[in-house]
Nucleic acid binder design. Structure first.
Lengths: 248, 248
DNA sequence: GTACGGTTTTGACATGCATCAATAACGGAT
DNA sequence: ATCCGTTATTGATGCATGTCAAAACCGTAC
């Protein structure tokens, strides 16, 4: 009874996972319809962040994970000497903060790349809930392991692939992530600056720029500023595999 | 009563976490003395693997995580084109397989670098147990997030640091991991070949070799084959920070 | 002890990308 | 619309590290 009432009187601060269009990507993905209320109970409808604003900062107390609702986020770590390394880009439906799970402080800094809204999952409540919902726990393990795998793939990209291969791989990754959200996988606008791409891929900005124009001259993509169109997806896929060819 | 009996009648196949010298590094670290039996109940005393033998293979069904008891393990991923990327080295007390948690198949291949013994944690039982022991669940989150962080650090190393800096960082990492086990942090034998180091750090074998001799000529280390002595730890730490200096 | 395959070291050379420098395009504020 | 700071592009040059090649070393098996 009480639950039924709460269901219809959702406070304005409470998110409604039931109605969220991202429920098939985000945490609700792993939660039974019946248990969805329990997830809604702990989630906090987050603030809106403007471009450049910090969602959280490295070395401050770790309190919450955040799901991107709209917009985009970049995470980065700063080494002792002040060097920044972009560690990831997060799009709607993706969970930010997993690299801090089980730690006292945030392991990285998260910044909004554009106007961005998020849902907030307080970590103590989330851990408690995953202890009760085995499927949710399993999903958390899955998400975290995927982040490990992604990071390993990045390491491989950085250590073995050329500038062209790295950029082709990033474009394809973004493409498939747009597609998951039922958006065009060939025509989208990059949420991040060339600088962020360069930093993420371990390249100089100038190199990123040069590769973009080279791809454009080859008719593989068409780009003006952040607007990108993938004209020849197959060619891009070939580029990422190019590396192997030479070694055969 | 039954528990007391079981305690003293440990089957030969069952590991004794109670008596393990690594219990302050491994999973028991996060488990109350009282609950240690429950961990022992699910752990399987693993096989011994000879150098080069596979503990598990990428893309085969994910069944267990493994804790290194003695010896050392390397994990690597193979891309579609057959390129190998070493993703990590695991020493006694460390847990292998976290990057596959929540997945159907192993995300990487694990090989013994030398004669190695392991403890095996079947994943279904481990997940069940972490649902019951919040501290253990928290610790699993912690371990996985640390693996994410480590991987991000590696990415940073690969994209921003010189060959010397990468190798200095690896030597220091190994040093501190030996020290945690109460072994000498300045005098140890590398468990892996130059080739593995090169692959892990995104370098050519020849470069690794050259840096080793350069360090040796500078009196920072002394190395003959896999035997290494760190003669000037401070100098090594300076090398890893060198990068920042120039940029100031 | 010797002989073999694999690993490590050393040298000479080539190259992809960083760096430096300058210009061009963009976007927000007035 | 205009201005100014930021971001992106384009060109010229240098260097760290990869690549190729060969020698030295090592452990292992016979």
């Amino acid at each position: 009874m009480a639950q039924a009432i709460r269901l219809h009187q959702a406070s304005p601060l409470k998110a409604s996972c039931h109605q969220c269009s991202l429920s098939n990507l985000c945490l609700p993905l792993a939660v039974e319809e019946n248990d969805l209320d329990r997830l809604e109970d702990i989630v906090q409808q987050g603030r809106i962040f403007n471009r450049g604003e910090h969602i959280f900062d490295q070395s401050t107390p770790f309190r919450s994970c955040f799901a991107v609702k709209s917009g985009a986020i970049k995470t980065s770590i700063i080494s002792e000497n002040g060097e920044e390394q972009v560690t990831g880009f997060f799009m709607p439906g993706e969970l930010v903060g997993l690299d801090s799970m089980g730690s006292k402080n945030y392991a990285c800094t998260a910044r909004a790349l554009e106007r961005t809204s998020v849902c907030e999952f307080p970590i103590d409540k989330l851990e408690e809930l995953t202890g009760k919902l085995p499927d949710l726990q399993h999903h958390m393990y899955h998400l975290m392991s995927q982040e490990i795998q992604g990071s390993h793939q990045l390491a491989m990209l950085l250590s073995k692939n050329t500038a062209e291969e790295r950029i082709a791989a990033l474009l394809l990754s973004l493409s498939s992530r747009f597609q998951r959200r039922r958006m065009s996988g060939t025509n989208f606008s990059l949420p991040m600056a060339r600088n962020d791409i360069a930093n993420f891929l371990g390249l100089a900005v100038e190199t990123v720029s040069r590769v973009f124009t080279r791809f454009q001259n080859q008719g593989i993509i068409s780009a003006r500023g952040r607007e990108v169109e993938l004209l020849d997806v197959e060619a891009l896929q070939t580029v990422t595999r190019e590396f192997s060819r030479q070694n055969t």
